[in-house]
Amino acid sequence: MTTSCRNSQDSIKNELIVCQECDALITVHLAQLREGNSVSCPRCDGHLIKHYRNRLMPSMLIALSGLVLFYPANFLPVMSLSVLGNSGQNTMVKGVYQLAMEGYWWMASLVLFCSVLVPLLKFCLIFFITLNAYLSTWSRALMHALKFYQKIEVWGMLDVYLIAILLSYIKMSDMGDLIVDVGLFCFIVFLLLDVLVSTRFEPRAIWRQMDEEGRGWRQ
C-alpha cells in the first residue's frame, strides 16, 4: 500500500513537502526551520510551514486564559444604549438569543457559530492538543481533535465582530447615551488571545511530531 518516501537518514537534514496550492515538490532544509523560520513555496508563494515545532507551554497557557475569559467576554454587557430613560444592553450571546426569538434561526446559529462557538472550541481544542503533546500521549482522540481544529479554524470571526461593535457604536452614538461596558474590554482581550494563539499554534507541527514517533491512523 502507501509508503513514506522519506528515509530516516534524509529526515534529519531535509524534508520533502508537497505544496497544497501548486503541487510542487519542495525540499525544505530542517536545520533552518528549527530556528523558527516560516517557509513559503518558491513556485507560488503559498505558505508551506509556519513553525517546525510548537512551543507548547505558552500556547497551553494562552488557551487556558482564553477559556477563563470566555464567560465575561460573551455574557457581560458589551455596551448599553439609553434613550429617554429606556435602555438596551448588548452581550455577545444576547444578540444571538434575540435573533432566535425573532425567528431568524438560521442567522442566529451562524452568528453563534462564528462568534461564540468556534472561538470557544478553538481554545478547548488547543488546550487539549497542547496538553497531550506536552505529555507525549499520542492518542486517536488527539488526532480527531487536530482534524476538528483544522476544519473549524476558518470559521472563527472575532476580528470581524470587533469591527461590527465599532460600527454599531458609531452608528448609534447620536441616538442616545451610549455606554461602553466591561464586557467590551473582556472581549478585546479574548480576541487578542485568539489572534495570538492562532498565529503561534501550528497543528501540522504536531502531526509531524506524531509521524516522527511512528504513529499512524491505523495504529
Binding site: S87, T91, K94, V111, M157, Y161, I163, K171
Partner: peptide
Amino acid sequence: MLDLFVVSILVTLVNL
C-alpha cells in the same frame, strides 16, 4: 459577515 454582526448587535442594543 460584518453587516450581519452589526444587525445582531443592534437588535439587542436598540430594543427600547
